[in-house]
Amino acid sequence: MSQRDQLKKARARKRGKIAIILIGLIAIYVWAISGIEFRGIQETAGPVTKNILKGFISPDWSYVYSPDGEDLIRGLLETLAIAIAGIFLSIILAVPVGLWAAKNLSKSFITSQSGKGVLSFFRTLPDIILALLFIKVVGPGAFAGMLALGIGAMGMLGKLYAEEVEAMDPGPVESIAAVGGNKLQQLAFGVIPQVLPGFISATLYRFEINMRSAATLGLIGAGGVGTALIFAIQGRSWDRVGIILIGIVVVVLIVDLLSSALRKRIT
């Protein structure tokens, strides 16, 4: 008898909990939907959508390559170059900070925590905002984009590197210390060989993200294929928008495939 009562009570409690969660969710959605300022869809939405779809079906193939001036291939190459140069900069920045933030390499808790703090600060800064700031420093163009990606990726790469170092086996480092290796030798022969595959895999993963980011940087004037895209959108030349998007999708897909194949081989 008492057991049945207990079960009943438990069930009632569970139902109450679900009801509270549901009411909370409904309240959140009422708040969200009522607050969105809905100005209605502009009349041109239908024709524009039709034109975009038409642009995808019959893209402007002549834009792919033109011997003089702006074309798709140059835009995509610039995007790729921004992503590559950016990842190189962030590797240089992230390795020391990542080692600094790794718990098992530093003696005091404060050292590694401060490193982690630096990394999480940089992780919250969006690439695009960094790009806007760097445009103010070095002027608009691909260089600003590359600096933004380099700094922006540092936070994430440093964190992944630190986690990789924290997960390693302490044995080799200890044995090098036991035979009298100094700190640098411990790092070079004990730490680096163990974490290298993980570092490379993390870097490749971030490179995939960099490609996507680099494609958007041009929207705000930081170089790459995004510049051509925003001009095409503003000029309402949808067939050109179509070919640019196709180009981005193809290049990003190829980079993704290559990178994930490499990552599978490494780890």
């Binding site: 969105i36 809905f38 959508t49 929207l219 895209l229 959108i233 981005i248 990003v252």
Partner: peptide, 28 residues
Amino acid sequence: LNVLRTIPDLLLAAIFAAILGFSPLAGI
């Protein structure tokens, strides 16, 4: 799905801002 995942969020937003006008709806 893989093709969909290659398009960055900001590019989608730029296109939908052109279709739907400069409003939160495009962002949503």
